[in-house]
């Protein structure tokens, strides 16, 4: 079949057009036959930079207990002092060794080492500070993770991907806040009441607070913030009108070990 140059160019142009626009042309012909999509939920809470402010003036020990209990419950955090089967009781030393911490309390000296004063307000010294993962801007745990199981999200949350964690515990060595815990034991026998909507963990992975990313995705505030009755504020640091910014702008706040350069994003009003 003979073909002159003009016809050849026409044909080539047409086939290029079809090749480029072929798929969308087909979709136009058969509406509704689009590919499946994975998106964020419309009700999800979003921010440029999530942060938390702990107002120690309002947070008494009971409220702190409520916060930790709420976290424990919705994240299936095991309580090694309280096994389902009484035969699985463990020694007090092991309770400390195997403890899983997401959010916990500690006195001033332990929470803010390096900032101790020789003489200071007795009240502050005896306060039980509520501690959790600081979701650092410059997280050392993320830098050392060999599998990228822990990573920093765009909105500042330092996330854990349990599927990828190989249990090397580099992150635990890197974290200056002891916010990470290793599962030395299968946690399931130590979870009295399983929360069905959240997974447990397995033996051999590291876990920590994730700022309740699964609740944020469903439009809910973190469990501890809800349980704190206003003592904890959670919001967008980049939004000048947010609750956290309001508190930070009008109060003197301290952070845990800021001199280490990790830029922690949990602020404390004393």
């Amino acid at each position: 079949m003979g073909m002159d140059r003009r016809d050849f160019i026409k044909l080539a142009g047409l086939s290029t057009l079809l090749g480029l626009g072929g798929n969308s042309a087909l979709e136009l012909l058969r509406p509704g036959q689009v590919a499946a999509a994975l998106e964020a939920k419309p009700e999800a809470l979003t921010a440029k930079r999530w942060a938390m402010v702990v107002d120690m003036r309002q947070l008494d020990e009971q409220t702190a207990q409520k916060c930790t209990a709420a976290c424990r419950q919705v994240h299936n955090v095991p309580d090694f002092g309280n096994p389902i089967d009484p035969a699985m009781k463990i020694s007090d030393a092991d309770k400390v060794r195997w403890e899983i911490k997401w959010i916990w309390t500690a006195p001033y000296d332990n929470a803010f080492p390096g900032d101790e004063q020789e003489y200071m307000d007795e009240k502050v010294k005896d306060l039980k500070f509520l501690l959790l993962c600081n979701h650092c801007d410059n997280p050392p745990c993320v830098r050392v993770c060999p599998t990228k199981a822990t990573f920093r999200r765009e909105d500042g949350i330092v996330m854990m991907d349990m599927h990828r964690c190989i249990g090397c515990r580099f992150c635990m060595a890197a974290c200056p806040f002891s916010a990470r815990s290793f599962n030395w034991k299968d946690p399931r026998p130590y979870i009295k009441k399983e929360f069905p909507d959240y997974p447990t963990r397995e033996i051999g992975v590291v876990e920590k607070c994730t700022f309740c990313n699964e609740r944020l995705a469903n439009g809910l505030m973190p469990a501890c913030v809800v349980a704190s009755q206003g003592a904890l504020a959670f919001g967008d640091l980049r939004d000048p009108k947010s609750k956290v910014r309001e508190l930070l702008d009008s109060n003197f706040t301290i952070r845990r070990k800021p001199f280490l350069g990790t830029n922690p994003q949990v602020y404390y009003i004393v």
Binding site: G32, V34, A36, L38, A40, P42, M159
Partner: peptide
């Protein structure tokens, strides 16, 4: 999608929406 990208809604070709969650 859920863990790494925070996308927890699945929209199937018919346009039906599902929460991205095994359990």
């Amino acid at each position: 999608a859920a863990v790494r990208n925070g996308n927890r809604e699945f929209i199937n070709p018919e346009g039906k929406k599902f929460t991205v969650s095994l359990s």
